[in-house]
Simulated assay, not measured.
Amino acid sequence: MPSGPILIVDDEPQNLAALRHVLDEHYMLAFATSGEMALEVVAKRQPALILLDVRMPDLDGFEVCRRLKANPALEAIPVIFVTSLADVWDEARGFEVGAVDYITKPISPAIVLARVRTHLSLVRAHRLEKSYRDAIYMLGTAGHYNDTDTGVHIWRMAAYSRALAQAAGWPDEDCKRLEMAAPMHDTGKIGIPSNILRKPAKLDAAEWEVMKTHARLGHDILKKSDAPVFQLAAEVALRHHEKWDGSGYPDGLVGDAIPESARIVALADVFDALTMRRPYKEPWPIEKTVVQIREASGSHFEPRLVELFVGILPELLAIRERWNTQDPA
């Protein structure tokens, strides 16, 4: 279970005892007998979940919940009301102030255990997703640590990739996974010497061969995880420099032999690279960028994806505008 205790809040000792009897064998518990005490315990103990009575003499449960949800450091803690107030109005008010569930007294041990298990499972799932996102953020940032790209580039490009995947008919969950995987496409640049990544002039033939190894390096790093998002990221890292006509690297794959994920990310990456400011160039105008991408249709890019790209260009420009408010690069 998550590391914090379950906090039980009730001003009646017999109610605290009843919940302790149900939960004590399974979970670490903390107790409070008033709303003010509950807020103090939450601040000190960071509970994983709160079972909260409504009618208390100082602060009622609704006010306690409202204050918790108004605090960014505490708002994610799930609150379940445990109360004898069972009418629809009180339930509606409880959900309105931020509770995730509602249990009525007298309690049923089976229901209490089931609700607690369910909501702790949701907490674990949320924390696991956050861990994935943190790892993705770190790997994406590490891949560009020594080159001249700005940090926003990889997240903006990931949003373009998701939009293109949606236009290509991908299921929503797969689109979301691609958006999470795309920022890791250049993870392998961790293994490329900084004098090559930061060279202000064109790379010579030997340097270019070293640079090309980043695709396989990234794949070898990311494939070590069995998680679907990292498996997808490994595929994209290995293949995003392949080209539709077979002139790409590392293996010169042609057409549909290139995974669609990598074809999508390749197009999104080039679009963002051309339209962003870098130390050595100004951003290209959108019209010039579209002409360039159209000219690369059938050589660098899959023609079908180019047409989809043009079709959703207003959506891509809206994404670009949103991200540019965070970083004008």
Rank of each mutant, 00 (worst) to 15 (best):
E91C: 14
L39S: 09
V42M: 04
E40T: 14
P47E: 06
I103S: 12
V42W: 07
I77R: 09
A43N: 10
E96F: 08
K69A: 07
P78D: 04
E91K: 15
L59K: 03
A73M: 06
T83F: 05
V79L: 06
L74M: 13
R67W: 03
A76E: 13
E40Q: 14
E63I: 00
L51T: 06
A43P: 05
A70W: 03
Y102M: 06
I107R: 04
E75Y: 05
R45W: 06
A92H: 10
M56W: 12
A48P: 04
R67C: 06
C65M: 07
D90S: 15
L59T: 00
A70R: 06
M37V: 04
D58V: 13
A99G: 12
W89A: 15
A43V: 00
E63K: 02
C65A: 11
E40N: 12
G61L: 02
F95H: 11
G61Y: 00
D87F: 12
R55P: 00
S84Y: 03
L51K: 09
C65H: 01
D101V: 05
L52N: 03
F81K: 07
V88A: 13
L39N: 06
F62D: 04
A48V: 01
E40D: 14
G94N: 05
L68P: 07
F95R: 14
R55Q: 10
C65V: 00
G61E: 03
Q46N: 14
S108A: 07
M37Y: 00
F81I: 10
P47M: 11
